[in-house]
Amino acid sequence: MRAALLLLFQAAALLADPRFLAPATVAAAAWFAGRKESRSRVLLGTGVFGMFFFVLCLLGAVEGFLRLSAPDYGRYALLTLRGYASFLVVVAGTAMFTLAEILCFLKRIRVPGYILTMVYLMVHDLSVFVRLASETSRAVRSRGAGLRLPQRLKLTIHAARNFMVFAVLKFRLRHEHIQARGLSLDLPLDEWRARERLPQSG
């Protein structure tokens, strides 16, 4: 039932008329942003897709100003909207399903154990990334205090680059951990899902 609903949402994100899709997407984003559990994810996604949209508008304005034969920016804007709506479907999916359920589903459709393990580890690493991102941001703000904008920008660019290197390193380390223990950690997914289904007692 939940999976069917999610598929329906995804189909709507890809196929619905933009006149209906746009207000529905805004309403969904507002709803998710109002929930504490999904707020940070939605704000992050809104920032990324908003940036795409802003760049498209900027390009359109520049092309218009220069009277060049502009590509169809409307089409790209629609794709951005559909991408953002699909992102919200993923957010809805994470609210509707537990990680164990998602991994069980992936296992059932015969996704290799290595990928299951990597997904599991990377989802858990997300909290580590969030912590490190906030520590890095504090370091940048601390060292950049009182500096001119170009220097602050330089610091921010280096910090972003460092963070990417760290993320890649973390991914490589995880890959090595999995390889060191065989091709998959053979996660006890069924057991986890069964435990989730037990009624919570106090």
């Binding site: 520590e135 370091a139 940048v140 601390s142 060292r143 205090a145 009182g146 280096h158 460092n162 760290f166």
Partner: peptide
């Protein structure tokens, strides 16, 4: 004046990797 405070006080936190930013 938080920026003034950060200018006057330099901090060294536990995780060095998030604070060493240059190449």
């Amino acid at each position: 004046r938080p920026k003034e405070a950060r200018k006057a006080a330099a901090a060294v936190f536990g995780d060095a990797d998030t604070q060493l930013l240059m190449p």
